[in-house]
Each structure stands twice: as structure tokens, then as C-alpha cells.
Design a protein around this nucleic acid. Structure first.
Lengths: 102, 102
DNA sequence: CGTATATTTAGACATCTGTCTAAATATATA
DNA sequence: TATATATTTAGACAGATGTCTAAATATACG
């Protein structure tokens, strides 16, 4: 399954990471390709990649010297579902507390 | 309109604040009522309220000594739309607001 | 007015976060 | 092997975040 709900929302809280996600939505990219789109050091970018990987929002695959990043849309869907649940009217299981998968 | 996209995702990044939002989905509550549900001080809770208000995720209304908090579902919907946009394959919304409203 | 209740603000403090530069690791290729 | 390229890791640092206690503010009521 995915990482914790907490790690996903934490990852989504940074604008650079949201931009990375959005960029990957158009297709997989190597770390170097992504780096060309962002005005921060490659080391900082790598740090963001770690956060995104911890949330399972992106997957990686080595291709020669390069590492290819791709979006894991399933986790984005799960985050969407969490928000939709808040909107949904919430007659959840008989007065029971929702299990907050933090 | 709503606050920045950044303030909304920042607000959603904390599990206590997500729980507050979820609690308010069942109906408006006073600060004191909410405080009974969370094992942190009222001062800390008030701090979270400020973050949620900054994101326009909640609205307040004074009722006597009490302050009533209610969910602003519109902003939750907007956050959902941002995530759906990532999933959607980049179809543009009318109005063309592609700018990252960080 | 004076006191009780409800909530927020102020100040402090430890921890987390995003960034950087420098160094390390991994792969490709001459 | 030696060297170049790609990416990550290590260490440092300023600023943000979440929490607390104590004090301040706002309203209600005797």
C-alpha cells in the first residue's frame, strides 16, 4: 500500500514538490531533466525527491547513469479521496470515529 | 476568494488540523467543544485555528462568549480540484489560471 | 462594578524544514 | 584503470512549526 496519509500531505505542502508532481504528470523525467525546471540546487531537489518517495508519490528506476522519476497517481488519488471524504457528508460507520491513518 | 493554494496545503499538512476539519464536517462547533476532542492546550488549538483561518478553510462567528467554527467546504473543494488536475492529464480549466498560486 | 467563563495572544523553547556547498557514490566510456 | 557525467549523501545553518505556560482580552451575569 501507500505510505502514511501524513507523509503524503506533508509532501504536498511544499510548492516545489507540487510543481514536481505536476511536471511528472506529463511524463517520466530524469533527475537532471527535472533539475532544469527548478532554480534550486540538485542536492535540494534530491532532498525533495526523498520526501516524495517517502510518501510513495513518485517511483524511481535507474536507466544507465540516469534515474528516472515517475508519478504514482494512485497515491494522488488516495489524497483526493481523503478530501472528498471531508466533503462527503460523513455518515460513516455508526457514530464511530474515523480511523485517522496519520 | 480563497487564500493562497500554499496556505491551504500547508494547513492540510498537520494531522490535528485535518482532524479539526473532519470534525467540523459534522457541524459547526465552538472552540471549547473542539478543545474537548483534542489532547493539546487550548492555546495550541487556537494557533491551529489561526492557520485554518488563514487558509480560509474555516469561518468564525461569535455567539455570546463562544466563538463558533464552521467548515468552508469551498476551499476543500478547491484543494481537491488541484489534485484532480494532476491526475487529469492537464486539461485546462476555463479562465486559464495555470499559474501556481503559491 | 466585580467575578467567572471562553478564547486568544505573548513569549519561550525544542524540533522540523528547505536550502546551500562539498564530498561521496554509481555508471559509462575512452 | 582513469576520467567524465549523474545523482545522492553529509553537514551546516537560518527560519518555520507545534507545543507549552502565563497573561491579556471579550463577554455574561450576579
Amino acid at each position: 500500500m501507500s505510505a502514511t496519509q501524513q507523509s503524503v500531505f506533508k509532501a504536498l505542502a511544499d510548492p516545489t514538490r507540487r510543481a514536481i508532481i505536476k511536471s511528472l504528470q506529463r511524463g517520466s523525467q530524469t533527475a537532471g531533466e527535472l533539475a532544469e525546471s527548478f532554480p534550486i540546487s540538485r542536492a535540494s531537489l534530491s532532498h525533495h525527491f526523498n520526501t516524495l518517495k517517502a510518501a510513495d508519490l513518485v517511483r524511481t528506476e535507474r536507466r544507465g547513469q540516469h534515474i528516472v522519476y515517475s508519478l504514482n497517481a494512485t497515491v494522488v488519488e488516495e489524497a483526493t479521496a481523503v478530501l472528498l471524504d471531508v466533503l462527503g457528508g460523513g455518515r460513516r460507520g455508526k457514530g464511530g470515529r474515523e480511523k485517522e491513518t496519520s
